[in-house]
């Protein structure tokens, strides 16, 4: 059992053991109670409560005015959400799978991301786009991709990826309160995977602050989302072989907590970057460049990327595509032996 997993019934006072999915629902419920400007919409999010159940109970509690189904139109969902944000309410738009976001890509990168800048700050676009992403659920090409890099490459967007239930709630609340458009990408593989203690009521985890998921001294592993628990398992095994692994869970890719990343790499002198997206031009490539540019003199080995293949996402062989404990361990080893 990793640090993020906990059995039901062990919750401390003021907390509750939840899955990530429950924590996400709890975050939206909390903010909808807190701020009547917050509305939630997307395909099947109303009575059905979302295909994964992330909006379960919101329609019943807040009514159709604040939690509603939309036509099957990602472009329309995001376009209208932008209009709402510009007008002054706080939309949370759900895109059913990140793989389906491309019809809305123009709206996100040309409109939402540039609103504040292009209008000299007159108009802003505080909205959250929630979307499950990533592999590990036998979803094939179109229910598995990790498209975070496209959005990280677009100035004006924030990109947030939680790895634990408590962070999912705290980061989502921070995203809803944020003054800028936030891509809130949910690692669906761990939606119901490990449960964790989640503070009840108000719980905010600030954007732009990474989390040291495990302290270590020999090598830094930079990761996010569903890869964090994979890296934790690898670190546990590495420890038995005498390698002390520090894991930095980025939490937010944009804005990046550069200080925490660089501080950790300077301390350990080695760096492995783990991400499940295609390797080339993935977010890990940016992390590698950053480390090389800003602290190469501290490095005692090559920066190693452990990533998905530069292929479309496979169906049957996804276990070979996705970075796993073995591949992370091999990556760690490469920073020592090269």
């Amino acid at each position: 059992m990793t640090a993020t997993q906990q059995k039901a019934g062990e919750a401390k006072a003021g907390t509750k053991v939840m899955t990530m999915l429950e924590a996400i629902t709890d975050a939206m419920r909390t903010e909808m109670r807190n701020d009547d400007r917050v509305v939630v919409f997307g395909e099947d999010v109303g009575k059905k409560g979302g295909v994964f159940g992330a909006t379960a109970g919101l329609f019943e509690e807040f009514g159709e005015k604040r939690c509603f189904d939309t036509p099957l139109s990602e472009c329309g969902i995001i376009g209208t959400a932008i209009g709402m944000a510009v007008y002054g309410i706080r939309p949370i738009a759900e895109i059913q799978f990140l793989d389906f976001i491309y019809p809305a890509f123009d709206q996100i990168v040309s409109e939402a991301a540039k609103m504040r800048y292009r209008s000299g700050g007159e108009y802003t676009c505080p909205m959250v786009i929630r979307s499950p992403y990533g592999g590990g659920i036998r979803g094939g090409h179109y229910h598995s991709q990790s498209a975070e890099a496209y959005f990280c490459h677009t100035p004006g967007l924030k990109v947030v990826i939680p790895s634990t239930p408590a962070d999912a709630k705290g980061l989502l609340i921070a995203s809803i309160r944020d003054e800028d458009p936030v891509m809130f990408l949910e690692p669906k593989r761990i939606y119901r995977h490990g449960k964790g203690e989640v503070p009840l009521g108000e719980h905010v985890v600030p954007l732009g602050k990474a989390r040291i998921a495990r302290e270590g001294t020999d090598v830094t592993v930079l990761c996010y989302g569903a890869m964090v628990s994979v890296c934790e398992a690898a670190a546990e095994t590495a420890a038995q072989a005498g390698r002390s692994v520090e894991i930095v869970d980025l939490r937010t890719l944009v804005p990046l907590d550069e200080a925490t990343v660089l501080e950790s790499v300077k301390k350990t002198g080695r760096c492995v970057v783990v991400y499940e997206a295609p390797k080339t031009c993935g977010y890990g490539a940016e992390l590698s460049a950053l480390v090389a540019e800003k602290c190469i003199e501290h490095l005692e080995g090559p920066i190693v990327r452990v990533a998905g293949f530069d292929t479309p996402f496979p169906y049957t062989l996804e276990h070979l595509y996705m970075p796993d404990e073995k591949r992370v361990l091999a990556g760690i080893e490469k920073t020592f032996v090269w």
Partner: peptide, 10 residues
């Protein structure tokens, strides 16, 4: 166009 529609919805 959809911004206009969304603003009106808001």
């Amino acid at each position: 166009l959809s911004h206009a529609v969304g603003a009106a919805m808001a």
